[in-house]
């Protein structure tokens, strides 16, 4: 619908349409301000150039009512833009559960994508059209920024935590995936593509990858290998917080605060358990900082999330 505007980027997601409308409104307001200033300046410069016959008598002496007028007019326009922009921001940055999830590990200088089914790809992201995709991102090293211009979405991937973002592509095609935060030598080439496929094509693509083990199953292997199951397993005698059904619930902490158990929370608990002591449990867990790569951490997170689903399915 915007293809007729010159120099306009691809618009391929519901997110992008919303941002487009705001952008056009902003262009309008900015254009209006620019045109007003330029028109006033040109008129005055021509009319009141030195030597022109125009009268200079009766200059405006009281200036404050003009100034108050401008203040109120600009403030009003700005507040409208602020509210509009903020509403979109809140909508863009609160990732819903999503129809599909993908996990992204950013490292210099590549994007590694892992699908819950265990399929993984590098510098490419295959997604189905018209589905809400929730993207969970981690960085192995420095700050990267996940940027798909055609979807108008961007979020920095900060090491030491997990970031989430979402999109819903509404156009089949191939779109640029970029890193928008300078991340070292080959930052410019840290690019990939987002392949938006139709539902059946996407299903076919998933099966063609020849993967036998889902991400959660891989995570379960990590879970056992690092001895997590010794305390958090079903048959454990240690008094450890249960993990089944944890994801998405609110957890009461020892210090009285309440936290949402999202992906970032699960990750923090694994790496730095002492700061996340759950109410009613002794702080026994050793910290795993430095022992797990972001890849393994994401698998663990996927596994712990899947525990909730299994329980509720039973």
């Amino acid at each position: 619908m915007y293809h007729w505007i010159p120099f306009w980027p691809d618009t391929a997601a519901v997110n992008a349409i919303v941002v487009n409308n705001l952008y056009i409104a902003e262009l309008g307001v900015s254009g209006l301000i620019m045109v007003t200033v330029v028109a006033m300046m040109l008129t005055f410069c021509i009319r009141y150039r030195k030597g022109s016959a125009a009268s200079r008598a009766d200059r405006v002496q009281k200036t404050w009512h003009f100034e108050i007028g401008w203040t109120i007019a600009t403030l009003g326009a700005f507040l409208v833009l602020f509210v509009w922009g903020a509403a979109i921001y809140i909508w863009l940055y609160q990732a819903p559960r999503g129809d599909e999830e993908v996990y992204v590990v950013a490292k210099r200088w590549m994007w590694k994508i892992e699908h819950p089914g265990g399929q993984s790809e590098i510098d490419a992201l295959h997604v189905p059209v018209n589905k809400t995709i929730r993207v969970v991102m981690a960085s192995e090293d420095v700050i990267h920024s996940f940027f798909v211009p055609a979807f108008r979405i961007k979020r920095d991937v900060v090491p030491g935590t997990l970031e989430t973002i979402w999109f819903k592509a509404d156009k089949i095609g191939v779109f640029k995936l970029e890193c928008a935060q300078f991340c070292g030598l080959q930052h410019a080439t840290m690019q990939g593509e987002v392949d938006v496929l139709s539902g059946p094509d996407y299903a076919r693509w998933l099966t063609e990858q020849g993967v036998h083990e889902s991400l959660a199953e891989q995570g379960e292997a990590v879970f056992r290998a690092h001895g997590c199951s010794g305390c958090h397993g079903n048959n454990s005698t240690v008094h450890a917080p249960p993990l089944a059904g944890l994801y998405g619930t609110y957890v009461h902490m020892q210090d009285g605060s309440v936290r949402l158990a999202d992906e970032a929370y699960i990750r923090d608990c694994i790496l730095n358990p002492r700061s996340f002591t759950v109410a009613g449990y002794p702080p026994l867990m050793p910290d795993f900082a430095g022992q797990l790569g972001e890849d393994d951490l994401l698998k663990l997170v996927a596994y712990i999330k899947s525990l909730g689903k299994q329980e509720s399915a039973q």
Binding site: V19, G85, I88, S145, P149, I153, K154, R155, A180
Partner: peptide, 10 residues
Amino acid sequence: TLGIDVDVHG
């Protein structure tokens, strides 16, 4: 404007 900054930042 937050919604636009998300797009054009960086």
